Amino acid sequence: MNGPSMRFLGHSTARLELAGRVVLTDPVLTRRVGGLSRVVPLPDPAQWRDTDLVLISHLHGDHLHLPSLRLIGRHVRVVVPRGAGAWLRQRGFTRVEELDVDGEFTDGDLHVRATRALHSGHRWGPRLTHGPQSEAMGYLLTTPDSSVYFAGDTDLFPDMAKLAPVDVALLPVWGWGPNLGPGHLDPVRAALAVGLLRPRVAVPVHWGTLVVPGLSRSARMSRLLVDPPLEFAAGVLAAGHDTEVVVAQPGEAVPFPAPKDHS
């Protein structure tokens, strides 16, 4: 590795190379995710074969996706919200670690802290009580030269400002259906999040990757597979934030901002 880098692999999955570690966020790497279909090309397996660390933001099937974790390998280090560890270990994963919100750990020069998120943490959705439950969260990754905030799934909350400033913010701007339920950022609220986080670079995620089969043919869904990140970028520009928005298509590399000169 020659320095920090990142690549958007689709939905909430990003490959981050930081401080000599390869980190994947919420990996979704297959053609099908439950009842959803992938409408963009699959990631090159080279993008996940050398993974050192997987960060899981919450238990929903499009974020904690067991078939994708099996592709990466059952012995790769996986960090999950507190309460999900035993459930995942029962499915054969051997290096599972749990974090509470505000919990943290260090791996070499990489420091990871779990952050708050406003989103349902139940595996099967907010209206059910059976099955695994844990608190949804995001992650703040820092090295001596850079910082990356991965929001997971969340709605806007004022304490985002306590994370500022960050070099890169990976912010969800939509989902996989024609509507958003509670606990999600849309393009407007994601642009407001930029004002709180003050990132140098903002990357819209959680869009344009998964869809309910058949819905992609509708005019509304066709627009929603394309428009949310563009609307987000327009909102950031209109607000006058000093942030570069990089709209990367699934599979594309994202330019990482140069380290700040602290001399």
Rank of each mutant, 00 (worst) to 15 (best):
R77W: 13
P259K: 11
D100N: 10
D102N: 11
Q90A: 15
L225W: 07
V205K: 01
S218V: 03
R123F: 09
S12H: 15
D242S: 13
M160F: 15
W174P: 05
G175C: 07
F8M: 06
G175A: 14
E135M: 08
P126L: 04
G240F: 06
G73Q: 00
H241I: 02
A86I: 08
P41A: 13
A248E: 12
D50P: 02
F150H: 13
F105D: 03
V166C: 06
V40H: 00
A253R: 12
L128Y: 15
A219I: 14
R189D: 11
A164Q: 09
L69S: 02
D167C: 04
D145Y: 02
G85Y: 08
A114L: 01
L24K: 08
S37C: 06
P144S: 11
L18E: 03
D261F: 03
R38T: 10
P158S: 04
W176Y: 15
L156Y: 14
S222N: 15
A14N: 14
P144G: 12
H206M: 06
H184R: 13
P228I: 00
R21C: 13
G10C: 12
S146N: 10
H262F: 04
A117N: 09
S57K: 02
G183R: 10
L192Y: 07
W48R: 06
D153W: 02
A136V: 06
P27S: 05
H241R: 01
A161D: 14
S222Y: 08
A117W: 04
T51L: 09
G177C: 02
M221G: 10
D155K: 02
V188E: 14
L237R: 15
P178I: 14
D107I: 04
L171W: 01
N2S: 15
S120M: 00
S263M: 03
G3T: 11
A46V: 12
L196W: 10
L9G: 00
N2G: 13
P182Y: 02
G73L: 10
G235Y: 00
P257N: 05
L24E: 02
L69T: 03
P199D: 11
P144C: 12
M160Y: 15
V245I: 06
D26N: 15
R198L: 01
R7F: 06
W48E: 00
P172G: 13
R198Y: 00
P4A: 15
G183K: 06
G251L: 05
N179W: 14
P228F: 10
D261W: 01
P126F: 12
L59Y: 09
K260I: 07
L197Q: 03
M1T: 13
P178F: 01
G61K: 05
P204L: 04
V78L: 13
R127N: 07
H119E: 09
L140I: 01
V246C: 01
R15K: 14
R74N: 04
T142C: 05
H130C: 09
D227R: 15
G240P: 03
G181R: 13
W174N: 03
A136F: 11
D153R: 07
A202L: 01
P255L: 01
P255Y: 07
R15V: 07
R189Q: 13
W48V: 07
V96D: 00
